[in-house]
Simulated assay, not measured.
Amino acid sequence: MKVLHINAGLEKGGGLFHIINLLTEAKKEGQDFELLTLADGPVSQKAISKGIKTHVLKTKSRYDLTGLKRLAQFINENHFDYVHTHGARANLYLSLIRKKINAKWVITVHSNPLLDFEGRGIMGWIFTQLNLKALKKADGILAITQNFANLLTNKIGIDNKKIHIIYNGIFFHESSDLPAKYDHPYFNLINVARCEKVKGQDLLLKALKDLHDPHIRLHIAGDGSELDTLKDLAQKLNISNQVTFHGFVNHDELTHLYERCDLAVLTSYSESFPLVLLEAADNLIPLLSTEVGDIKKMIPSADYGFISPIGDLDMIKEQILKASLMPSVELKEMAKREKEYLMNNFSLANQLETIIKAYGEI
């Protein structure tokens, strides 16, 4: 079975690590998986550094469709059995050459396709419509949660027989291999997410304001179109001294941040099965998330972490306060429990096995 994974190539966050980790696990297990990116960028560079067989189409811009013929020719001449796309731009390219290739086409839906381009005006609406049409043309869809599978069927009209549920996984480290935590004087929250409306970081800032506790500090790691708006909001709320905006951070920088953080917080309005929480748990950080996607499969009870209803500012505040008042030994035990549970259920080996099974069914 020969599989080509395709991505635009400009991902820097969870999408990059999903693709790279999956292909790294496939390489480790002797699977014939290759990667093609539409442009040179973080994804191709990371893949090459990991020894993954990588090709770059070298498109000139986001709107360059001149590579379509070359892409179809590459797929057919290399006799791929499956082409597996990640992201709206890669989906669009495959939708335009679908009838010219011999391979089966599979799409992973990493996020809510109805919200991916929210707040981007008429161009956002056009991109959304193009992506929805592409999803309907694929031979199979891998949805990261049951919630997304239901959305694809009920709101987008995709036949549920084409949809397979695939939960994200990561490489977990032995806890003894993790660097020691830094002693620090504050209760540090960390939010790792793009600064976009769908991530709900304004709720975090408002919660911090309402808690009136200078001992609680917030670190936001991510860039995006809402970054300046969030900085302005922090100033308006007079909490700038409690918030650090780190912008985009690489994996090593994030690992160092985790060494002095006490709670990983995600206040999104929509997520799939967030890798950032798996990675925080791997670093023995307790988790707080809004009730997005299939988060209850990640945090099955209050013994494993904290959950708030989506958009519920009062509950977000309550859960942050509850965590900040817990004895540190209890928080550490919660983090250990959560990591052990996730290691047993959401490893990359489990994810790859499920994907290969889905290929066969498709």
Rank of each mutant, 00 (worst) to 15 (best):
K46V: 06
G30N: 09
K28N: 12
Q31S: 09
K28W: 12
I52P: 01
E25Q: 08
H18Q: 11
A47T: 03
K27N: 15
E11A: 08
F17W: 14
K53H: 10
G51F: 11
I48D: 10
K53F: 12
H18R: 04
T37S: 08
D64S: 11
I52A: 04
K12E: 10
L23T: 04
T24D: 07
Y63M: 05
G67I: 10
A26P: 01
H18Y: 05
T66G: 04
A39M: 08
K28T: 09
R62H: 07
I52N: 01
H55W: 15
N21V: 12
T24F: 03
S49R: 11
L65I: 10
P42I: 06
G30R: 07
L65A: 09
N21C: 06
L23Q: 05
A26E: 08
A39K: 00
D32K: 10
G15W: 00
G30D: 03
A39S: 05
T37M: 05
E25P: 02
K27Y: 13
L23C: 12
E11W: 02
S49M: 11
F17T: 05
K28C: 09
G14E: 02
K12L: 13
F33H: 12
G13L: 02
K53T: 10
E11T: 06
T66H: 06
G67V: 07
E34A: 10
K50F: 14
Q31E: 12
A39N: 13
G14S: 15
Q45L: 11
R70E: 09
V43C: 01
D64E: 11
I52C: 13
I20L: 12
K28E: 14
N21M: 03
K28Y: 12
A39H: 04
L23S: 04
T66R: 15
H55K: 09
K58C: 10
Q45W: 10
G15R: 00
D40R: 02
I20R: 00
T37I: 15
K46F: 15
L22S: 07
T59Q: 10
L36E: 00
E29N: 05
L36V: 05
D32R: 04
T54M: 03
G13P: 03
L35W: 03
K60N: 12
R70V: 09
G13M: 05
F33E: 03
A26R: 02
K12R: 08
R62E: 07
N21Q: 03
A26T: 08
F17N: 01
I52E: 01
D32A: 11
N21L: 11
A39Y: 03
V56R: 00
V56W: 00
L68M: 06
K58F: 13
A26K: 09
L38Y: 04
L36W: 00
E11K: 07
Y63G: 15
K53C: 14
K60W: 10
T37C: 11
S44R: 01
H18T: 02
H55P: 02
K46N: 14
T59C: 07
Q31C: 11
A39C: 09
L65S: 11
S49P: 06
T66S: 15
F33L: 13
R70C: 07
F33W: 08
S44L: 03
H18S: 03
L16A: 00
P42Q: 05
R62I: 05
L22G: 01
K69Q: 14
H55G: 06
S44A: 15
T66C: 08
